[in-house]
């Protein structure tokens, strides 16, 4: 969510009527949760709140933030990277830590300016190689997640949790499903469970994102 206002800065800088920026909140909390964060950024880009995680499902993303570049012909020319708008720094002194990168936003600008001539545009083969393939179980997990959302929207928490658990077990690679579920727990989305799963995830050699193969210009 720290990127929400920075995407607006980038969108303002690019200022190209043939460029569309669509920023999507993957959030079952809906407008109540994501709306104020959008509003604080005074955005002019397209804002979507996606409680069913349809965008992550359609592009087979497992985590946020992630993104796709779509060219004028509707072809994806980059996909599924850790798409941070800048390096974010938190804390001070020994406690300071950073995350994000400072190469992705300049790459977007370069692509909008140069189109297919941008060095950051990938071939169809590179892109299809980076698109995750969803198994039948992972597709079924999407259906289970939405079924849970329906019951939660109607206050049927036991059923909601049953189907979210089903989604998590059918698609254990989805950090989105895991952390969205953990928002309802006491420990929250960045507690012991999350870090435990992440440790296992990394040790098994799984990737949250495809490599961000962008050299600093």
């Amino acid at each position: 969510m720290f990127d929400v206002p920075v995407w607006q800065q980038l969108y303002t800088e690019i200022n190209d009527e043939n460029f569309v920026m669509i920023v999507v909140a993957e959030d079952t909390g809906g407008e109540a949760t994501a709306g104020p964060i959008f509003d604080a950024a005074n955005p002019t880009y397209v804002q979507v709140i996606d409680p069913d995680h349809l965008v992550s499902s359609a592009f087979n993303f497992v985590n946020v933030p992630s993104a796709a570049w779509i060219d004028e012909e509707g072809r994806i020319v980059r996909i599924d990277e850790g798409t941070y708008s800048k390096i974010h720094t938190f804390g001070e002194g020994d406690q300071a830590f950073e995350f994000g990168n400072d190469v992705y936003a300049p790459a977007v600008k370069d692509w909008v300016a140069k189109g297919a001539d941008s060095v950051h545009v990938q071939s169809a083969a590179q892109v299809t190689g980076n698109i995750r393939q969803h198994s039948a179980d992972q597709l079924k997990a999407d259906a289970a997640f939405r079924l849970g959302n329906l019951f939660r929207a109607h206050g049927q928490e036991a059923k909601a949790e049953r189907y979210w658990e089903m989604a998590r077990s059918l698609n254990p690679d989805s950090i989105n499903f895991l952390r969205q579920d953990l928002t309802l727990s006491e420990e929250g989305s960045a507690g012991e469970t999350f870090f435990g799963v992440m440790g296992k995830y990394m040790s098994e050699g799984k990737d949250l994102y495809r490599p961000l193969d962008i050299e600093k210009s």
Partner: peptide, 19 residues
């Protein structure tokens, strides 16, 4: 907004979350 209707323009679609 239909992605198919954006032809002729470049689009960046990027996700985030509050959690």
């Amino acid at each position: 907004i239909r992605i198919a209707d954006l032809k002729g323009k470049k689009a960046l679609i990027v996700t985030w979350s509050s959690w």
